[in-house]
Design a binder for these strands. Structure first.
Lengths: 237, 237
DNA sequence: ACCTGAACACCGTTCAAGT
DNA sequence: ACCTGAACACCGTTCAAGT
């Protein structure tokens, strides 16, 4: 069979297509979500709007509504796309605590890879198929730990919530530092200057409170360890 | 001294003021924040915009900018107004764990009293004077528990985060139920219908996962207990 | 069935002009 | 100093009309 697509060869100079924009990828949910994720990766959630997204896809905003019911659904699809990237291991009863921690680090990393996208899953609780698979995987790890069903159920809410908010706050911090490189230093100075008479405990603890950059990871690990230790106290084996 | 203000008596029928709108309260940060909180209480964060807020104050949107730098600052002021209502007890070393829990319940209740306002403090970390006093109070309780400084510092981040996100999600749930009374029942049905072949753990745990209305409080208490137990394991006394 | 231009009904914020 | 009307530069979404 001869080449039947113009995609695979450069356009010859005599072609009437010469000088046109590259053939536009036909619109589809897939293509829209791909483009939306690219916009978020480049400029965060604030940069994502239907008009700009349409522009990215070489069309008008109205055209998007044939494939997506609106911006809310688009955000849900974005979240589920990211959830699809999360790898959840098969439960190993011997090391369920380590697996819970690895799960938390994995989800945090996947969310943090897309700026403040985590914020979108705070407003709309994710119920897409991939998100549900992630939850199912987490439930599996927790059950293998021999925890009571109600504890497993609560923990499967609590952990993703903790992870998501941490990723979100982290992204806001990163964004802030991008726009205002010395914001954090100014804030630290402000906190150090608070009068000890009215804020005795802040005054006493400014330094441990205002950590450096690596501190964000430490704080996450601290919270994670706290939760897992608490869960372990419920294990009946 | 004679009455010098028209505010204290009904307008007499011969007054030229008769039939006018009641004398407008002069604009001020206070008045603007009051009105904004009333708008949020009535319709949530989504209902709060500068134009509608101006209307509420019988003026144009541009007038607000003489007292408030913009919507971001307004939200910060709103959060700090709510923080001012939070009561923090003086530390009692004997019952620091109970005090931490009482603190958490108090902050949650204050936030939950204003619809989804908690969401505003997720995007912008509160640094207003009253918010800092609240943090200082929490630090005091934790220090009285004999916890290491770094643990105290991390916990003072983690706890408000946990409380705020819980209040926020709770408000979103409440709002959803207001608009779509049988949303939750539909969602429960959907979860029950998930194929056990692909979602074995969800299938096994739908019931503990999909609690009733009081479940929200139970889940909060569970998370709170988990955190406090974890903290207690660091106490050196 | 899919796409489009144009419009509708909103937003936050600015700015020159008024008092 | 404080307030205002009017405009600027955006938004999400709809809808009649096209192919």
């Amino acid at each position: 069979m001869f080449v039947s697509s113009t995609d695979e060869l450069p356009t010859p100079p005599w072609s009437s297509l010469k000088g046109r924009k590259p053939a536009r990828r036909p619109l589809s949910r897939e293509a829209i979500v791909d483009a939306a994720l690219a916009v978020v990766d480049a400029g965060g959630l604030a940069a994502l709007n239907m008009r700009r997204l349409a522009e990215e896809l070489d069309t008008g905003p109205a055209s998007l509504y044939a494939h997506v019911s609106g911006k809310d659904e688009l955000l849900q699809l974005l979240i589920d796309r990211v959830a699809a990237e999360v790898e959840v291991p098969a439960p190993d009863p011997e090391r369920w605590q380590g697996q819970v921690k690895d799960f938390a680090r994995e989800l945090r990393a996947r969310l943090s890879a897309h700026r403040d996208l985590a914020g979108a899953s705070l407003a709309n609780i994710p119920t897409g198929p991939h998100a549900l698979l992630v939850i199912d995987g987490l439930l599996g790890i927790l059950r293998a730990g021999g925890l009571p069903d109600q504890v497993v159920a609560y923990a499967a809410d609590l952990l993703p919530q903790f992870i998501t908010i941490d990723a979100y706050e982290g992204s806001l911090y990163a964004e802030r530092m991008e726009r205002e490189p010395d914001y954090f230093e100014e804030f630290r100075t402000y906190m150090r200057a608070l009068p000890a008479s009215r804020f005795p405990n802040i005054a006493a603890l400014v330094e441990p409170m205002m950590g450096d950059d690596e501190d964000a990871d430490d704080r996450f690990e601290f919270g994670l360890d706290l939760i897992v230790r608490g869960l372990a106290s419920f294990a009946h084996r």
